[in-house]
Computed example of a mutant assay.
Amino acid sequence: MSAAKIAPPPIDVGDAEPTLYVARLEPYRSLDERGFLIVMLVVAAISFVCGTTFLLMGAWPVFGVFGLDVLAIWWAFRMNFRSARAREEITVTPSLITVLKVDPAGRAAEARMNPLWTRLDKESIEDYGLQRLMLRSRGDGVEVGGFLHTAQREELADGLGSALSTAKRGVVRSAL
């Protein structure tokens, strides 16, 4: 997961709106493609050695079962890597909140909200921390950071809360 990043302080560039907050969220995966290859080679080697041992003892069907195990592990990792393609992009400006959600298949859904009418709802469980984070505007809600760890979700909540309060308070634009 790319940690939520707060945009630099707003800079007035003519009529362009300052960005109050930007976050690009991605699910964390500890195993990269190289690590996956190493794990699969080790699993395949162990399965081949064990399967060959059973084959030499006369239990030839076990050799195929070890092959199916390797195939099942490979498939599970592939599905895990596929789900890692999901992401969320959140941008807050003084007049617009944009939440872009991209699912693992690449389908995108975008929600746009006015920050003046948007509130941040937090669902917490005392023993487990922040469990759910929703941006609600005029009855519609969008869950954000659903795949994040609790501490990362709290960091996102702090950043979004700060950006929302800044947008509601109003951004001072200086005329040079």
Score class of each variant (00 low, 15 high):
G129D: 04
G14E: 03
W74R: 10
I6H: 07
A23K: 06
D15E: 12
E17S: 15
G129I: 11
L133P: 00
L56I: 12
L100G: 00
F54R: 07
V99N: 03
K5Q: 13
A111N: 06
A84I: 04
P8V: 08
D140P: 00
M79G: 04
I11Y: 06
A44N: 08
T166K: 15
M40W: 09
G146S: 14
Y21V: 02
R136T: 15
L160P: 03
S2I: 07
L71P: 00
G58A: 10
L31G: 06
T52C: 03
S174Y: 06
R34K: 07
I90G: 02
L130D: 02
P61E: 14
V65S: 11
I125C: 07
R119N: 08
P18Y: 09
K5N: 08
G64V: 11
L71S: 06
E123C: 09
R85I: 01
P61N: 13
L25K: 01
V142C: 05
R29G: 12
L156A: 10
D32V: 12
I97D: 00
Y28T: 11
V22Y: 06
L68W: 06
A86W: 03
R169Y: 09
G35H: 04
V43C: 06
A157I: 10
A23H: 05
M134L: 12
S47T: 02
G129R: 05
D32L: 12
T98P: 00
L20F: 08
L56R: 12
F63S: 10
S83H: 15
S83A: 15
A84F: 07
L133R: 00
A3E: 06
E26D: 09
G106W: 14
L116C: 06
K101H: 11
F66G: 01
A111F: 04
F63D: 04
F66N: 03
E89F: 08
R78I: 02
R82G: 01
M113A: 14
N80T: 04
F77Y: 14
D69S: 05
G129T: 10
G58L: 11
I125E: 12
D121M: 05
Y28E: 14
D12Q: 15
A23E: 02
R169P: 00
S162W: 09
M1G: 13
